[in-house]
Design a protein around this nucleic acid. Structure first.
Lengths: 69, 69
DNA sequence: TGATATTGTAAAGTTTTGTTTACATTTAAT
DNA sequence: ATTAAATGTAAACAAAACTTTACAATATCA
């Protein structure tokens, strides 16, 4: 299980989903799915988010040692 | 592009590929592919590796802002 | 040298991430 | 109130992560 603060950081920076999507080179749907925790981004995409917001991956995403990964 | 020091950390801990695979709940093939940089692990798997070796994701994996992701 | 553990390779299959499109709903501005 | 921008949803598709199996090549060690 992965929790994330993508939405918070996105709004903090006044980015629309579409703008952020463009910045990291994915579709808007992908942003939506990640924000909703529907999936588990790839590491390189996670790095892109972290870089854009200038934070560590661990600050943007938190791993919860749970039942199902 | 993602570089990683998985192999180094694995050997440092005297783990076989198979043992490490078991620890993080993936197949040995997955370990091989990641060690060889053949693919880009999911974030949750990356966290598992980092946790097992007791290092930050950023220490295990380095992101290179290149041509193709 | 011969047995055993470890690593390499390859290929076909499954699952999940990520795309694309299209439209509906909400929010923000004028 | 109306328009435009932003967000939500859904479904079919493509691509990449990950599995499984099977066997070959290296290393380790008695």
């Amino acid at each position: 299980m992965i929790q994330n603060h993508l939405r918070e950081y996105r709004k903090l920076n006044n980015y629309s989903q579409e703008y952020l999507a463009d910045q990291v080179n994915v579709s808007r749907q992908t942003i939506i799915s990640i924000e909703k925790g529907k999936f588990n981004p790839s590491l390189s995409l996670s790095f892109k988010f972290a870089n854009i917001f200038g934070v560590a991956i661990e600050e943007l995403f938190q791993y919860e040692e749970d039942n199902n990964e």
